[in-house]
Write a protein that binds this DNA or RNA. Structure first.
Lengths: 190, 190
DNA sequence: TATAATAGCTAATTATATTAGCTAAAAGTG
DNA sequence: CACTTTTAGCTAATATAATTAGCTATTATA
């Protein structure tokens, strides 16, 4: 019996699996079981095997995140835009910890498609910085700073969970304010 | 013939392997080959198998990094200390990309030993912040901010390499200055 | 020197990814 | 509508890695 599957449905199931069991839980075997088919059948959809599957899952996540960020920033500018973007990023990670792990797949930075999928977010960030008084180079630096912070904070949060004496929420807001304050300061000094 | 191995020698070889082929290149098979023994023999040293090996490798890396950071911060205070710490961290990552990947092993945050191994660095960071005019809570936030930045920046650098129009060195210094400026600003506002 | 512990080995087991080749269902075509 | 082609599943087989069981020689120790 044909199960009527396609790439999209399979990736969605893979994302579910990643949420439930982490990226290491996304195996050909586990995924096939979950879909009610046999592992070799997956190769009809992903000729590149597990490698291709991981890559598609990564891209799926980045596209989803890109959508969220885009929505969050609409109609905002400057600090407000950066704040909205950062909260959207963190919100996404917190509610998709498993998928976020898949998004960090080792090959993410080599992939052209990843550039496209996450390029939206970077583009949005540049635009948010557009109204600051900065050189182009400084904007590049700033985007890298914010990306680094978001990525580092998210990774740590995903792993250590939330049961700390000082809440992560507070640390996130503090850090964001500190960075924005620093950016404002840099502008004056320039 | 007995090869005269012990945990330490094996871990050092594993670290070499990680440098050469990435964490995924550290398999029982590859490691045994490299050491001139058969895979099952490794279980005499690491009863916990690959899991234990990964964990030990992670700890080895953090202890090494802790040493570097400690050295770098000696005799420095405040911004100088933070700057030295950050440069030491980044320097370590850049020259140990493979090992750093192993240090990010999924279990790092759950492990008590990791707390110990990386606790030194955190302790040093707290001390560096000791002379700032901050509440204890703000210090926690600040440590988290700096850790997030270092971790995020490092991860990105390890993956994308260095061939960019705007050099990563410059972005690192810019980001560090921005953060330090932000921290200074937060103190005044408090 | 005798004994115990250690660190290696081979052989076998398990698990997963993957390939090859088969077949029925679906989709298109005269 | 009958025919053909493509597709999406299957089973069987292969390759590789981790791991376990049980054997043995070397080393360390009583």
């Amino acid at each position: 019996m044909k199960a009527g599957l396609n790439k999209e449905k399979i990736i969605e199931k893979a994302a579910e699996l990643a949420e439930k069991n982490g990226l290491s839980g996304v195996s050909m075997k586990a995924l096939a079981d979950e879909l009610g088919i046999k592992p070799p059948s997956l190769y009809k959809h992903f000729g590149g095997g597990l490698e291709e599957l991981n890559k598609e899952l990564m891209l799926y996540g980045w596209r989803l995140l890109d959508g969220e960020i885009t929505k969050a920033v609409i109609g905002k500018a400057k600090d407000d835009a950066v704040i909205a973007l950062c909260h959207a990023y963190r919100g996404f990670v917190v509610s998709h910890k498993g998928l976020y792990e898949a998004m960090q797949w080792y090959d993410m930075y080599q992939s052209e498609e990843h550039m496209q999928a996450s390029g939206g977010a970077v583009e949005i960030m540049y635009r948010a910085l557009g109204s600051y008084d900065m050189t182009e180079e400084q904007k590049v630096h700033t985007v890298r700073l914010v990306r680094s912070f978001l990525q580092g904070f998210s990774t740590i949060e995903v792993h250590i969970g939330n049961a700390r004496r000082v809440p992560l929420d507070d640390s996130f807001d503090f850090a964001l304010n500190t960075i924005l304050g620093g950016i404002a300061g840099m502008q004056k000094d320039r």
